[in-house]
């Protein structure tokens, strides 16, 4: 074998190796892109509102928490992820920067006790309150919570801090299935509607997750849906 041929073989094989690793990377990246089921972009409105002497444009977004039988993917053996409860329609929420965001959550789940009662308090909303079916409250009893919407992010120089904790009151029913809606939030009126507002800062990437232990009997009930990305967790982009 000549030197040239050997060198060519070495270089081509190395490039091939890099290409194989690259292909694995692209595959993983593609899988990751699907994990949150698209984007949910907040609707901007023409109105503005004044908070603490400053003018903010308004935007609104509507989400729900429901065991999503319509979009869930069968996974592994029994128990299928079909039974996992999740935020939706997407777990990637896009909000405008420096805006007064009003979020409406339609929630249909039963619930119980929080691992940490702190998350029964409302934190980070306008006025420190949330509106549950027309009533303003500043906290929900820590043993009557179904889920929480807890929005946070890395404290970093490249973005403004944003922390919101909204406890969602449980639905008092024995037969949970009665309240499992279709894919579209808002079509079932037996649950609660929770409305709250908060101010976004500059651009940034944040995450949200649920602090109610809804993980199917696993340790601290934080396994299953809680530990799987894109069910009770997701991300929030302020753009």
């Amino acid at each position: 074998m000549t030197n040239t041929k050997r060198a060519a073989s070495a270089i081509l094989s190395t490039l091939l190796g890099i290409a194989v690793v690259g292909a694995v990377g692209i595959t993983l990246h593609t899988l990751s892109a699907d994990a949150l089921r698209g984007k949910l972009v907040a609707t901007k409105s023409a109105d503005t509102i004044t908070v603490d002497g400053k003018n903010y444009p308004k935007a609104s977004v509507t989400m729900g928490v429901y065991p999503d039988r319509a979009t869930a993917v069968e996974h592994g053996s029994k128990p299928t992820k079909k039974d996992y409860v999740q935020y939706g329609p997407s777990n990637h929420v896009v909000l405008p920067a420096h805006t007064y965001v009003t979020m409406t959550l339609h929630v249909y789940d039963s619930g119980d006790k929080l691992n940490n009662p702190y998350f029964g308090k409302v934190v980070g909303t306008i006025g420190g309150t949330i509106n549950i079916d027309g009533v303003d409250v500043s906290s929900v009893a820590p043993d009557a919570v179904q889920h929480t919407f807890t929005l946070h992010g890395l404290p970093t120089s490249s973005q403004d801090p944003l922390f919101v904790n909204v406890p969602l009151p449980h639905v008092e029913v024995n037969d949970k299935d009665e309240f499992i809606p279709t894919k579209d939030p808002g079509t079932n009126n037996k649950g609660h509607t929770v409305v709250f507002s908060f101010l976004t800062g500059g651009k940034g990437e944040y995450v949200f997750n649920c602090e109610y232990p809804c993980g199917d009997g696993t340790y601290a009930n934080f396994g299953a849906a809680m530990g799987a990305y894109g069910y009770m967790s997701g991300k929030v982009t302020v753009a």
Partner: peptide, 20 residues
């Protein structure tokens, strides 16, 4: 200090304050 999957919370018992 209470660690919770995946948020810290702080309680100041002598001051009656809870915070993130």
């Amino acid at each position: 200090v209470t660690g919770n999957q995946w948020v810290w919370s702080f309680n100041y018992p002598s001051l009656g304050v809870e915070s993130n």
